[in-house]
Amino acid sequence: MIFSATDLEGVIAIDIEMQHDSRGYFARTMCRDEFTSRGLVVDYAQDSMSFNQIRGTLRGLHYQNAPCAETKIVRCVQGAIYDVLVDMRPGSKTYLAWQSFELSASNGKAVYVPEGLAHGFQTLADATVVQYRISAPYAAHAAAGIRYDDPLIAIAWPEPVTAISEKDASWPDLERYGERRPLRAVPT
C-alpha cells in the first residue's frame, strides 16, 4: 500500500499495489503493521456498505459528534464516486476546508478519514457500491451533518443530484463558523 498525505490535516490517501497476472490482480487493502507504524487507527467496530442505483446519487455530508466520533476508511468496490471530506475540527489548520477524491473499483484507492471530518459522496456510475470501515458503532444521538450545497463550504459537485435522502437534503446550513479555505481536488 502507498500512503500519501493530503491537503486536509490527518487525511491519508491509500493506493493499493496491484499484483497482476493472467487471472486479474491481488492487492492488500489493510495491514495492521503498516497502519500502526503511521499512527493510524487499526481497531474498527464495524464494516458497512452502501449500494447506490443511479449515477448522481448523493449521500452526506455526515459525521458523529464526540464522544462517538468515528475514524473511517472509505473505498469504492463497484463503480465510481466523487468522495468529499469537510474538516469540522475548530482547532484544525484546515477547519471548514474541503477536499475531493475520485474513488473507483478500477483505481482501488481508499481514503483514511480521521475523527471530526464530515464525509459524503456522489456516484459517478450506476450500481455503485461503497465500503466503509468505521472505528465506532453508529450512535443516532451523536449523528450530525451539513448540507451538500452549503454556500459557506461551496463544494463543486460534478453531477446534477439525481437522488438524495430527505434527511441529507435538510441538514441546516453552517453559519459563520470561520473563514472558508476551500482546497483543490486531489488529482486522480
Results as ranks from 00 to 15, higher is better:
Val74Gly: 03
Thr94Lys: 03
Gly60Ser: 06
Ala27Gln: 05
Gln122Cys: 09
Ala169Lys: 11
His62Cys: 06
Ser37Asn: 12
Met1Gly: 12
Asp168Ile: 08
Phe3Pro: 10
Tyr44Ser: 09
Glu17Trp: 00
Ile16Ser: 07
Arg75Gln: 14
Leu85Cys: 12
Glu102Thr: 15
Val11Arg: 02
Gln122His: 08
Arg28Tyr: 10
Arg133Thr: 13
Ala5Tyr: 05
Ile146Arg: 03
Thr71Trp: 04
Gln99Glu: 14
Ser48Ile: 07
Gln131Pro: 00
Val11Phe: 04
Ala136Gly: 07
Thr94Gln: 05
Thr29Met: 09
Ala163Asn: 12
Ala169Val: 03
Gln46Asp: 09
Phe51Glu: 10
Glu115Ala: 14
Val74Arg: 01
Arg23Lys: 12
Tyr138Pro: 11
Asp43Arg: 11
Phe101Gly: 08
Tyr95Gln: 04
Gln19Trp: 03
Glu9Ile: 02
Pro160Thr: 12
Ile12Glu: 06
Trp171Tyr: 15
Arg32Thr: 13
Pro90Glu: 10
Gln64Met: 04
Ala136Lys: 11
Val74Ser: 04
Val111Lys: 03
Thr188Met: 12
Arg59Lys: 13
Pro151Asp: 14
Asn52Leu: 13
Arg176Thr: 02
Val111Ile: 15
Thr71Lys: 02
Gln46Gly: 07
Pro187Leu: 12
Glu34Lys: 12
Leu183Tyr: 02
Gly56Ile: 06
Ala169Tyr: 05
Gly116Met: 06
Gln53Trp: 08
Gly24Pro: 05
Leu61Ile: 02
Ser106Ile: 03
Trp157Ser: 13
Ala118Gly: 06
Glu166Asp: 15
Pro160Phe: 04
Asp15Glu: 15
Val86Arg: 00
Phe35Glu: 08
Asp87Val: 04
Arg184Gln: 13
Ser37Lys: 13
Lys109Phe: 00
Gly39Lys: 07
Pro137Asn: 12
Ile155Met: 13
Gly145Ser: 08
Gln99Ser: 10
Lys109Pro: 01
Ile54Val: 14
Ala125Pro: 02
Ala136His: 15
Leu61Val: 02
Val41His: 07
Val86Ser: 03
Glu115Ser: 10
Trp171Ala: 01
Ser165Asn: 10
Leu103Gly: 03
Gly116Pro: 05
Cys31Arg: 14
Asp47Glu: 14
Ala110Leu: 10
Gly108Thr: 06
Thr123Asp: 09
Glu17Tyr: 02
Thr162Ser: 15
Ala144Arg: 15
Val129His: 09
Ser135Arg: 09
Arg32Ser: 11
Val129Ser: 11
Lys93Trp: 00
